[in-house]
Design a protein around this nucleic acid. Structure first.
Lengths: 153, 153
DNA sequence: TATTGTTATACTCTATAACTATA
DNA sequence: TATAGTTATAGAGTATAACAATA
């Protein structure tokens, strides 16, 4: 099998992401959450809340699974369900005050870690990194759109 | 809370990785494997095999969990356990012929997807992307080394 | 005594599909 | 009829800790 040029780029990308995830998961567990639970907390952070449907689309968690995860977060007092007035089939999930608090506490170690990693980055370094990542993301989204009709049923 | 410059870079990185993972997981399920199972297959691919210890370190899966995952892959006929002659506490895991075959088949859709995304990339584009990612990875690894002593107990 | 891998337990996530209530 | 979310079920991953065999 021929070595394609882009495989190296993908490996690098995966390795970078891995480093962040390692830090994240460690701190998430330390606060008594599972990674999927934190995924929900992080998605709801700094928002007024959103429906199960929207939450499922953003996190790529299917609705049946989502019910269970939100149940556990509600038991912990981190989120609340509210009925949606416009469409009474729909439920709005949002962070409680304690949920907002944990959200901030969980991000702090991340931010600390990132700060260390980026200490020597100049404005130009950031611009160069973001430029390449944004370009990659655009091409990936285009390729994805051509492949997956993407449902959440 | 002040918006730190690097948070935008991290978000971009996560979004790019997400796109790859989405494709990966879809194809992995299609072949009847779970993502952790594929993680093992991918790690063993193109190697002569390795011990549980090494496999656990590379995939970040703890040893108790690893036993179960390897059990299921062995039932499917994709990997085999072999005793290690040098250290009889140790077990070597390696892909069977069928495992190698599935490994290749699973990477094919990935490669196809990536090829689409990178169609318009020139040699210079690749060089620029790799340069930024490699630099990021180096800084991340340094930051990680200063934080986690990193055990797999 | 330390290390490698297995076993045991309890809980969470996951896919899938049937179900209720709205629209 | 379609959609939003829940419930039910069976399987898989996970952390954790105790254990056996070997070093």
């Amino acid at each position: 099998m021929k070595k394609e040029r882009y495989l190296r780029s993908i490996r690098l990308l995966a390795e970078c992401f891995h480093a962040f995830q390692q830090i994240s998961d460690t701190n998430v567990r330390r606060l008594g959450l599972t990674p999927p639970q934190f995924d929900i907390i992080a998605t709801l952070g700094n928002t007024p809340g959103m429906s199960f449907k929207e939450l499922g689309e953003k996190t790529l968690i299917t609705k049946g699974t989502l019910t269970g995860i939100v149940d556990r977060l509600e038991e912990k007092g981190l989120v609340v369900r509210t009925s949606c007035l416009e469409d009474r089939r729909s439920m709005i999930v949002r962070l409680t005050a304690q949920g907002e608090n944990d959200f901030q506490r969980l991000f702090a170690p991340h931010i600390q870690f990132c700060k260390q990693a980026f200490l020597s980055y100049s404005d130009n370094d950031f611009a160069a990194l973001d430029h390449e990542l944004a370009k990659l993301k655009q091409h990936l989204d285009e390729a994805l759109a051509g492949i997956t009709p993407c449902s959440n049923t």
